[in-house]
Simulated assay, not measured.
Amino acid sequence: MEPESSLTSPRTAALAGITRNVFVLGVVSLFTDISSEMIVPVRILFLVGVLQTPLVVAGIIEGAAESAASLLKIVSGRLADEASERKPLILFGYVVSNLAKPLLALVSTWPVALGLILIDRTGKGVRGSPRDALLADSSPSAYRGKAFGFHRAMDTLGAAIGPLLTFGILALSQNDLRAVFAWTLVPGALSVIVLWLFLHERQRTAVATPRTRWNWREAQALGARFWLFAFVATLFALGNSSDAFIFLRTEGLEHSLEAVPLAYFGFNVVYALLSTPLGALS
């Protein structure tokens, strides 16, 4: 598939390779991550402090949520390869996630919260692979790294704005965590609207006889470099401390709920500023 034309003249080096779909997907991720990252730094505090979830159970909830998202990427990636259109999968994933998050404002028990968190992460797992595939198809090969870097920058910019909004909501609502969850509806709805109205995908030729089962030959075809990367990434994930426990520790050290989203805001600002230039180097 030939990538769509760029939004700007090729002479404009700063925006070269940022096509319409790349830009739209970036805006969608911006709004979605504002919504998602509004609750990330306070979700564990809500589970433990408000719902009285045992700390071990809270850790299991966080781990189960991320595991569900990761495993579903495999399935959604296969579906994205076999589908003639990827937009429906992407749209479904964003709708599911952005409906589940504000509903957390209404829960009173941790099992219900677990269900909603899993639904949220299910949406993330479903949309991730087809979105990335469409992003790759929509960017010129010479600028693919830059396109993904731009998308990551928009994604992480949203992740920086989200905690800042959380700080403001907590300050104005006297630390009402439920208010934070409720307000995620606004950026979440905006992301779905932008995706629905402005993402345009060229229909691809569907796979005539899609295979639905993995086999060893397919695994070998991925290559040694892929499996080495997967092995290293797995080791890193096993040794990496969950951010949720860092948030708990921050709140405990500072004795301030507002300090948690502010610390997370600083981290994400640095991430956002470095994403596009480092992506361009690839």
Rank of each mutant, 00 (worst) to 15 (best):
V194E: 01
K87A: 00
G115L: 15
I61S: 04
S5C: 08
A100V: 00
A136N: 07
A230P: 01
N98Q: 03
G63S: 12
S242M: 08
L103W: 01
A219I: 10
Y271T: 15
A272R: 10
R217L: 13
P41L: 05
S141W: 11
H151N: 12
A272S: 15
R249M: 12
W183I: 14
L99M: 11
T8I: 11
L170Q: 12
L274N: 08
G77W: 00
S76P: 06
S108Q: 13
L91K: 10
R20L: 01
A16S: 13
S173T: 15
L134K: 09
L79R: 00
S5L: 14
S138A: 12
M154P: 10
G239E: 03
Q203T: 02
W183E: 05
V96W: 00
G26R: 05
L185Y: 02
R249I: 09
E2R: 09
V50Q: 11
R152H: 10
L257V: 11
L134R: 12
I119C: 14
I44V: 15
P187V: 08
L197C: 08
V28F: 10
L103D: 04
D33K: 01
A221T: 02
P41F: 07
L257D: 09
S275G: 05
A13I: 08
L170E: 05
K73V: 00
P130R: 08
I193N: 04
Y94I: 02
V56E: 14
L72Q: 11
I193L: 15
G59A: 14
